[in-house]
Write a protein that binds this DNA or RNA. Structure first.
Lengths: 214, 214
DNA sequence: CCGTGTGAATAAATTCACAGCA
DNA sequence: TGCTGTGAATTTATTCACACGG
C-alpha cells in the first residue's frame, strides 16, 4: 500500500515525523540508503515500537529484515506533512521576535518562505528587515493576494493578537501560528496553533519544583 | 483540601494553567473578585468541564453556586507552575532568535529573568544585547555559579545543540528549553523541552492539506 | 534469522452527567 | 437555584508481543 487516503494522523505522530524527516535528510546527505527503526528512533529520541507504529500510519514502506529505504521514505513523510507544495507566509508584528523569525533559516530550509512582514507602527513601516520591506497593516489584504500568502505568523503583543488574527482571517489566511499567550477566536475552518514560550518555561519550572520536593 | 501533595499533573493541564493564570491577572487588574468556570474557560479557549477538572487537580478552591475567587486562585496556580520562586535563565546562542528572546517581555513579566547571554563566536563575545554583555562559552560555568542560573535556553543551530546541551548540563543546569530541531541526549534528572517552530508550521501545513483533500 | 507490521493491552486524557453544597 | 466537584464512560495515544515476510 502507498495511498495515504485521509486517515487522522495524531498530532504527536506528526511532530515526530518532523524529526524523522530531518534525520533522514542527514542520512541521505551522508550517502546511507537504508535505516532501521532502532536507528531512526534513537535519532528522534523515541522507541523503535513508536516509530514503526508512526510509519505504519502512512502505509507499509519498510522491508522486513532490512529496514526503511531513505529515499523512499522522505517523500512519504513530506507528503504527510503537507510539504509537497511550497508555503508562503507573512509575519505580523515586526518586533524583536518577528524580525528574528523573518531571517530564521529553519523556515526557509524546510519549505516555508517568508514573503511579507507587517506592522502597525508607522515608524517601522517602510524599513527593511532581512531583505523585506515592512508593510503597513492596511496593505495586508493586497499582500496576501499578490504574494499568494497561505500562512500567517503572529508576533504581536497579547492585547493586539485578536485584532491581528481578525485582519489576517479577513485577508483569506486560514492557517495561523500565534506566539501570543491568549486564546484566539477564529471562524470555523481556520486553524490556529499557539506557541507560548513562557508557558514552556513554566512547564520546566513545574517539573523542577516537583522534582525538588518528592 | 488545599494541600497539593505531589500529584502527577498532566502537561496538557499545566499548559492551560498558564492561560488561566494570565486571564486571572487581567480580571484582578479589572477589579473582578470572582469568576465562573464558564467565563474562565471561554477566555482560555476550553470547556467549563475541562477547566473544573483541571482546577480540581489542585484541590477544591471554588465555591459552589458562586465560582472561583480570583485572589485565592492566583497563588494556587502560581505554586502549581513552580513560580513561587524566581527563575534565572541563560540564553545560549546570540543569533537573531537568542537576541530576540533576551529582550522578550513575556519572560520577565512571568517571573523568568534573563541573566546571561552566551555565544561561541569571538566576534560576538563582548558586545551588548538588551543590556547584557555576551559571554564566551568558556565562561558559562562561572556565569551559572555567580548568577545562580537555573534554566538554559538553547538558540543555537541544530549541529551545535548537543554540544551546547553538554556544556550547560556540565555547568549544573537541569532545565533546558531548546529551539533546535534535534533530540538531545542528556543525563537522567535533566529536563529538556523542545520547541520546534518549523514543526509547528508543518502541523499547520498538514491540517491545511488534509482539509483541502477530503 | 532480522526487523517490520499490527492487533491487543495498557495508559492517559477528555468529556459527560449528576451528586452535593452554598 | 446555580455552579462546583468528581466518579464513570468515552475517546485517544502509547506500549507490548509476536506473527509474518524477505
Amino acid at each position: 500500500m502507498s495511498i495515504p487516503a485521509s486517515p487522522r494522523l495524531p498530532d504527536a505522530a506528526l511532530r515526530r515525523f518532523s524529526l524523522y524527516l530531518r534525520s533522514l535528510g542527514e542520512r541521505a546527505a551522508a550517502g546511507e540508503s537504508t535505516v532501521s527503526s532502532a536507528e531512526l528512533a534513537a535519532a528522534a529520541g523515541t522507541t523503535p515500537a513508536t516509530l514503526r507504529k508512526d510509519l505504519s500510519l502512512l502505509g507499509s514502506h519498510g522491508r522486513r529484515g532490512v529496514g526503511y529505504d531513505v529515499s523512499t521514505l522522505v517523500p512519504v513523510l513530506e507528503s504527510a506533512l503537507g510539504l509537497s507544495t511550497p508555503w508562503r507566509l507573512v509575519i505580523v508584528g515586526a518586533g524583536h521576535l518577528g524580525r528574528a523569525l523573518a531571517g530564521y533559516p529553519g523556515f526557509a530550509t524546510r519549505g516555508f518562505g517568508v514573503v511579507g512582514l507587517v506592522d502597525a507602527a508607522p515608524a517601522v513601516v517602510g524599513t527593511k528587515v532581512a531583505g523585506l520591506k515592512v508593510t503597513a497593516v492596511e496593505g495586508l489584504g493586497e499582500l496576501v493576494r499578490d504574494k499568494a500568502v497561505t500562512m500567517a505568523v503572529l508576533t504581536v503583543p497579547a492585547r493586539a493578537a485578536q485584532d491581528a488574527a481578525d485582519v489576517v482571517v479577513a485577508a483569506g489566511v486560514r492557517s495561523i501560528l500565534s506566539f501570543a499567550p491568549v486564546a484566539l477566536r477564529v471562524p470555523h475552518g481556520v486553524d490556529v496553533r499557539r506557541v507560548d514560550l513562557a508557558t514552556e518555561l513554566q512547564l520546566l519550572a513545574h517539573h523542577a519544583a516537583a522534582a525538588a520536593t518528592p
